[in-house]
Computed example of a mutant assay.
Amino acid sequence: MMKLRSSPPSPFGRKIKIAMAILGLKDRIEIEDANTADPSDSLRSQNPLGKIPALILENGDVLYDSAVILEYLDFLAGGGKLFPAGEARFAVLRNQTLADGIMEAAILRVYEKRFKEPKYRDPAWDAYQGAKMARGLAYFEENVPKMPSSADDIDAGTLTLACMLGYLDIRFGNDNWRDGHPKLAAWLEAFEAAVPAFATTKIPPAPVPDNDPALLQ
């Protein structure tokens, strides 16, 4: 059986777990929590970058990061489910990259506050990352994907978009992205209704301890 190394708060790991459900692969992959802050965790020997998610194949090979793992799961499921063929594929890849980039910027902002003492924090750096997030959200608000009615309507781009918005709910609850993005908010509601795994992989948007190791990607 394959093994997915991840942690519940990780939006990158979450999209793999949802993909497993959508593609009918849950019975073929065991999920094992990883502590990226622990030098003794075997994750660092499985992925030299020490990042999650990492997928350990049955032959011992390891795949990372989430975009590569999604491609592999789509391949296992017969192909063409999360990544369409032809020219349409490139729009999906672009949307996945943009949503991943927003998540990465969000995580860097959380790192800045979580792992630096106040006197060492850089407001300009935080604003720089925040501007990336704002531009990305504005793009998706103006180019909101088609409303999904079932899991068959989901691709790698929309899956990543949903997990990105879910991450903002968890880590930026006081700065509600929905206020300025009503189309995206409505789209996410439709996504959650169409994809039950989105609800089952959700964690509460409650504050976490400053030393929460699960935050590290």
Rank of each mutant, 00 (worst) to 15 (best):
K3G: 12
L4Y: 12
F12N: 09
F12H: 13
I16C: 13
M20P: 11
G24V: 02
L25H: 09
D27P: 09
D33M: 06
D38V: 11
L43G: 03
N47T: 13
G50T: 06
L55P: 02
L55R: 10
N59I: 01
G60K: 06
V62A: 14
Y64V: 01
D65K: 09
I69V: 10
L70T: 05
F75G: 01
L76Q: 14
L76R: 14
L82D: 14
E87H: 08
A88Y: 07
R89E: 13
T97N: 05
A99H: 09
A99W: 05
I102L: 12
A105R: 06
I107W: 04
I107N: 04
I107C: 01
V110Y: 05
Y111T: 07
Y111V: 11
R114P: 08
K116S: 03
Y120C: 04
R121W: 06
P123H: 01
D126L: 05
A127Q: 07
G136Q: 13
Y139N: 01
E141D: 07
V144M: 00
S149D: 03
D152P: 00
I154N: 03
T158A: 06
T158L: 07
M164C: 15
G166P: 12
Y167N: 01
D169P: 08
F172C: 07
G173F: 03
N174K: 15
R178S: 01
H181F: 05
K202L: 09
P205A: 11
P205I: 12
P209Q: 10
D210M: 15
D210C: 12
A214P: 00
L215I: 13
